[in-house]
């Protein structure tokens, strides 16, 4: 039980996927200029990341390992993730138009989020079990969402400021991301995982 709690603390704060492991930076920079869209993106990513880490675990455990095809990990995970995302989108589209309107355009974008593939590969590397894999994916997504939402609120405030010309837009966002990463260094050493 404590192990699972530690996995959550570790992925959300200590080894945050964006600010400490530098995965999933594209949506972090791209979808963070408005708070509303950042929330949509966070919801969609949490959904997909959890499902994808489950599916990739199953693929690895019951397909790749028995057939000794571990060298196909990367490519098969990409396939699984793309399939899961597409399937989710179709399912949501048919069953819940409201949810589709919220998550809609973000779902295909997530296919290319390297954090999703990163979680799948790290799960194998760290030898996580069934529940640990799911929790690792979920924690990664929560950490991603936390940072993305805070960052987008921060960017809205910065956009209102008097930023000097050469630093407007992405440049100041990069500097801000750097300072955020600095702040997250404070959590170093809290969980040894």
């Amino acid at each position: 039980m404590v192990d699972y709690l530690l996995i959550l603390v570790s992925t959300v704060l200590v080894n945050n996927f964006i600010l400490v492991q530098f995965l999933g930076l594209c949506p972090f920079m791209g979808v963070s200029s408005k708070l509303e869209t950042a929330m949509g993106m966070s919801l969609a990513t949490t959904f997909v990341l959890t499902i994808a880490s489950l599916c990739s675990y199953l693929t690895s455990r019951y397909l790749l390992k028995p057939l000794q095809l571990e060298y196909l990990q990367t490519i098969s995970f990409i396939l699984v993730i793309a399939f899961v995302v597409q399937f989710t989108e179709m399912l949501v589209h048919k069953t819940s138009p409201l949810l589709h309107r919220v998550l809609g355009i973000f779902l295909p974008l997530i296919t290319t989020n390297c954090a999703v593939l990163g979680v799948a590969l790290l799960n194998i590397k760290k030898d996580h079990g069934f529940l640990a894999s799911i929790l690792y994916g979920f924690g990664a997504a929560v950490g991603f969402s936390l940072v993305l939402i805070l960052f987008s609120a921060l960017r809205e405030r910065i956009a209102a400021g008097d930023v000097p010309g050469p630093f407007k837009g992405p440049a100041i966002a990069m500097i801000t991301a750097g300072i955020m990463s600095l702040a997250f260094m404070g959590f170093t050493g809290m969980v040894a995982l």
Binding site: I179, L182, A183
Partner: peptide, 24 residues
């Protein structure tokens, strides 16, 4: 952070962490 982290003092980190949450 003081109790469980690896830094003995935590004021700077805590303030920065909450600074980034302040707009939210």
């Amino acid at each position: 952070i003081r109790t469980f982290g690896s830094y003995p003092e935590a004021m700077a980190f805590s303030v920065l962490l909450m600074n980034l949450a302040a707009p939210f």
